[in-house]
Nucleic acid binder design. Structure first.
Lengths: 224, 224
DNA sequence: CAGCGGTTGGACTGGACGGTCCACTGCCAG
DNA sequence: CTGGCAGTGGACCGTCCAGTCCAACCGCTG
């Protein structure tokens, strides 16, 4: 079981030369790929070493210990995932944009051979501990991801097009994505992912205020 | 990395006395609990041994190797999960029944301290391999779970109350549940689970045929 | 009570893995 | 050219862990 460290720095060394930075980068990249495929526990430092053509001392030169390396991998994956959807994620304030995002996510998964779920999701499942929960970096990753979704939804809400809590909808969408990816990974097919996202999108659409205009929907107060 | 075995039996011994069966049972139960909490890789056989007050030779008397034990744990967890929702899962053929199921699942998670996701989900995340996917037992577990949901939905569909593919809806619901549990585990709160299920339920409701109404739905022959 | 199969205890082994240590090399500043 | 420091190579250590082995034990049946 790997526990994320807490407390004092433990930042190990930040490389000061270009070569050093390149090596560190190479290590994190390879480690991220290996851990995505085989899991954190299933990836040994020797494998990372072999995959990068580095030596043991370099790993420990740039990272205090394995959990520090895992921390770096987490940061990288969070950044990577968010960046990959950046364009579609930025301005989700209409059903059309939401569908574009859906298509993008599905396409990415299909391109990846419908194999291997969300890197963040996998890390959470593996690293979450009953008493301390998941590492903060991961929780934060989910949080900003959800916020990005909620931002656009919030705009729709403020425009009076949506009559539900944008945060809850965003959480639901994110959950649908994660669950869809999990099932997709299990069945090695994108179908469950599509089903999950479509169902969630239908749920969002159900909270659309029918006409921009007239009168409140029966039993559902119209937002100011 | 643990791989599930395939090929020849490898069933090890089935206990023939009551005492033997009790011991085997004790081992599987404890192993399931440990693996749910710490993951498969994070649970050593020595820990299982200690938790059950058994000896190494007993573990290897009843299970060929660790992966056989994992297989038994999987079977147990699948059965356990499905059984826990049996009553609510059995006749999901109305929105009311669907909500009852939702409430049941949320209550179970809340009771568990909003900690630790779905046992099956965790196993899938940890054991799924890029090239061979998840162990069949797990995929089957998901499949029967989804079928249970789809059965009720199918009845609604045949009654003309639902205008969508019951299988896709079931997959979406299951994904929402899994994703919701993952987020719940990360944030240690049931909120995301509620949000996920509510959104999915809204999605199902959106596919309800407006009036129960007489006569065939357009384009969809009414079943005899 | 003798024998036997199912069951149990626990020492032992070989290898994997995280982590340490020290000697060396390349690069840049003075 | 040279001293020094970031960067590198890789042998080595202690621990953990899956899996092996054999000697005992229990409870049944003949």
């Amino acid at each position: 079981m790997i526990h994320m460290h807490e407390g004092p720095p433990l930042i190990s060394e930040a490389p000061s030369t270009a070569r050093g930075r390149a090596t560190r980068e190479r290590i994190v990249t390879a480690a991220a790929a290996l851990m995505h495929q085989y899991g954190v526990a299933g990836t040994s430092l020797d494998e990372v070493r072999a995959a990068t053509g580095t030596s043991k001392s370099q790993l420990y030169h740039y990272f205090a210990d394995k959990s520090a390396l895992v921390g770096a991998v987490i940061q990288r994956q969070v950044q990577q995932v968010l960046q990959a959807q950046q364009p579609e994620l930025d301005g989700i304030d209409s059903m059309i944009a939401l569908r574009r995002w859906r298509d993008r996510v599905v396409a990415m998964q299909r391109q990846a051979g419908a194999v291997g779920g969300c890197p963040i999701g996998r890390l959470v499942a593996e690293l979450a501990d009953s008493e301390r929960g998941a590492p903060v970096e991961l929780v934060d990753g989910f949080a900003t991801w959800q916020r990005r979704l909620a931002d656009g939804l919030g705009r729709m809400h403020r425009r009076g097009e949506l009559d539900a809590d944008p945060d809850a909808l965003a959480a639901g969408l994110l959950a649908a994505l994660q669950g869809g990816l999990l099932l997709a990974q299990a069945t090695r097919s994108v179908r469950p992912l599509e089903a999950a996202l479509d169902l969630a999108l239908a749920g969002v659409a159900a909270h659309l205020v029918p006409a921009a205009r007239p009168g409140p929907v029966p039993g559902r107060p119209h937002p100011s």
